[in-house]
Design a protein around this nucleic acid. Sequence first.
DNA 1: TTGCGTGCAAAGGTTTTGCATGGCA
DNA 2: TGCCATGCAAAACCTTTGCACGCAA
Lengths: 138, 138
Amino acid sequence: MNTRLKYKTKQREILIEYLEKFQGKHITASDVYEYFRSQGESIGQSTIYRQLESLVDEGIINKYIIDGNSPACFEYVGNDHHHDAGEVCYHCKCQKCGKLIHLNCDELEEIQEHLFKDHRFKLDPIRTVFYGLCENCI
Amino acid sequence: MNTRLKYKTKQREILIEYLEKFQGKHITASDVYEYFRSQGESIGQSTIYRQLESLVDEGIINKYIIDGNSPACFEYVGNDHHHDAGEVCYHCKCQKCGKLIHLNCDELEEIQEHLFKDHRFKLDPIRTVFYGLCENCI
DNA sequence: TTGCGTGCAAAGGTTTTGCATGGCA
DNA sequence: TGCCATGCAAAACCTTTGCACGCAA
């Protein structure tokens, strides 16, 4: 199902470079497509999807599904598999204005622990999205 | 964005009845469509989507997105959220077996407080679903 | 040279939308 | 009667797939 690509190609290189540059932002497949198209270095859509899938597989980027209809978001998390790498961010989505907030917060990690210890539920922070109202919409 | 439907129609009635009957199971929009079609009481697809959206809005059913490409799942949760104002029920959804776990837990209330105090985000516990793995699927 | 990777176009599947008709209040 | 809801078909949307060509190793 997940075919991990094996060659080092130009497309892969510049894709990784791009994602790394925008670390901390949510990048969609079409963001990538439009960006390279505007740069004259266009990459085919299928290549983008295939490379992104592969990079997720390798743990170099994370894939976030905020809601079923909007496109998946990707974010660079690095390829050094040390403790601080692979850091996951939590997401809050405003139901009113649609704003997406991502949080790197230790306190939220405690939820994970609590759910696991007391409820034997292993939370998947990548898939979980907190819905509610942002400060502007409260 | 979310237009809440206001009339009590036959389609709405039998849809709710159906969802309630299959409480605890994952129902997709096309499950609904096929079911009623096979019963000779067919409901139009757009009606199904519109009613489901409305019911989610009203908190009568929850919507689950297990993975971005497969269709969204819906599940009856009733309007027991409004029973006693103080006690809110959180939901954990197992990504593997689909089990839905209802939690009434004080510690989870702290998340709400934390998000509000430190991140100025007002969590909606009804809409928010924790995804992960249940004890049987870990 | 041997596959894997790429890119185009087309298909796939889910959800939304436009518009005329039907039905609730 | 005045809206709202319905249903059909078509569109929109993101993503995957088939296939021929190109390129890395």
